[in-house]
Structures are given as structure tokens and as C-alpha cells.
Amino acid sequence: MELLLEGLKKAIEMILSGDPEILEITLLTLKVSITAVLISTLIGIPVGMFLGLARFPGRKFILAIINIGMGLPPVVAGLWITLFLWRSGPLGDLAWLYTPTAIIMAQILVSLPIVTALTSTAFQQINPKLILQVKALGATKLQLYWILTKEVKLAILAAIIAGFGRVIAEVGAAMMVGGNISGETRILTTSIVMEVSKGNFDIALALSFILMTLAFIITFSLTYLQQRKRSL
């Protein structure tokens, strides 16, 4: 209990003192996580919509692969990204390994299947007669997709929240592809692991409180957006 209180005290001190290193780590955490979720959302929603509405041979197989991807261990994602970005790897020339870009790539790899699979499920649940009714109202294809997306917006926001949850908590892949380099690729989760390994529990706790506060604020905002009251 004393350790917890000490950690909380330390976190408040760190925030109030405006420690530049903490600020840098926090901003980088936000930057990589939000970028990864944004890219996963931009790719995952249209792909999920297509898989949810279209019928073609091999669709079930693709859905099964994406569902498996939801449980992809982050260290495996990290390993794949490392192999791709390794000097002799297919993307080695880009020199992205041990950069924030590599962390973003790894985070996309773990969050994209979640956003895609949950979005696809949402579209599969749409009543086929509603699609026909919207068509009968005179919608173009693009207008139809936009209306259907608005119809499943609650589920899509849930998919984004789940994707964000996975990304903000991710440590294994970020450690592997980012290397936890101070001032370069150190984010909150990798810092916590490092501080625990050094025995600095108070700093680790302080960082964890900052991480939880960030996660709470972002998840709360998304949930608020999702649950905006219907007018009666």
C-alpha cells in the first residue's frame, strides 16, 4: 500500500515538475498509439465493411485468418516486423528498425485485425432488407455505404476502442522493434518494464499511473462519443 501511495505521489510530482523526459515519453506514446489506431481505423473499416457485406469465394477463410490475427501475440508481430526491417530484410533499406515508425508498424499489426474483424461482424448483422430499403430510397453505392456505416457506428466505435486498448497496452513488440532507446523510441510501457528491471518500483508505478490516465481519458472520450444520448 505504501509503495502504491509512493508511486502515486511520484507520478503527481513528475507531472507537476514537467520533467522533460517524462513529457517526451508521454508524447511519443500518444503519437505512436494514435497514429497506429488511426491507420488501423482507416484500413480496417473499409476492409471490414467489404468483408461484412460482400459474398465471394474464400471470404470465410479470410475472415478466419483475420480472427486469428486478433489473438496474434505482440512478440510474434514484433518478430515479423523486425525480420522485415532488418538490414538484410525486404524493407531493410528504409532503415526504420529502432524508430517510432517500426513501433507504429508493429502496433498496426496487432490492432488492425481487431478493428477489421469487429467492423466486419457489425456489417454482417445488418438486416439485408435495410440495405434494400436504403437502395429503394435512391441511394448511390457510396451513399448506401455511408448510411450503413452510420447504422453500425456504435459497433465501429467499440472496434476502435478495442484496437486502442490493445495498442496502448502493447509492450513486447515495441520493445523488440523500437529497442527502448532513450529520446528515440522509449514509450511508457517499455519505460515501465525497464524501471521494474532496475528495481525502481516507484518510478514504474508513477509511469503506470500516467499510462492509465492517458488510456482512461482517450477511452472515456471514445465511449462518450459512442454513447451520446438519443433524443427522445
Binding site: 438486416n127 429503394a136 430510397l137 435512391g138 441511394a139 448511390t140 451513399q143 448510411i147 452510420k150
Partner: peptide, 30 residues
């Protein structure tokens, strides 16, 4: 051609919005 017709189905299949917006939807699409 399709926009010259209108269809009302057995289930009302209203959209997740207000009555006003539901009635307005076809006009907005146009």
C-alpha cells in the same frame, strides 16, 4: 430510374436517427 419510384416495406426499417431525419433521408440523398 430507381429514384422515380418509392417502396415501403413490411418492416418500417427506420434509420438510427430522428423521425424528421428518417423522412428527410431520400430527399437528402437527392
Amino acid at each position: 430510374m430507381r429514384r422515380r419510384f418509392a417502396v415501403a416495406m413490411q418492416q418500417p426499417l427506420l434509420l438510427d436517427t430522428t423521425v424528421f431525419q428518417n423522412v428527410a433521408v431520400g430527399l437528402k440523398l437527392r
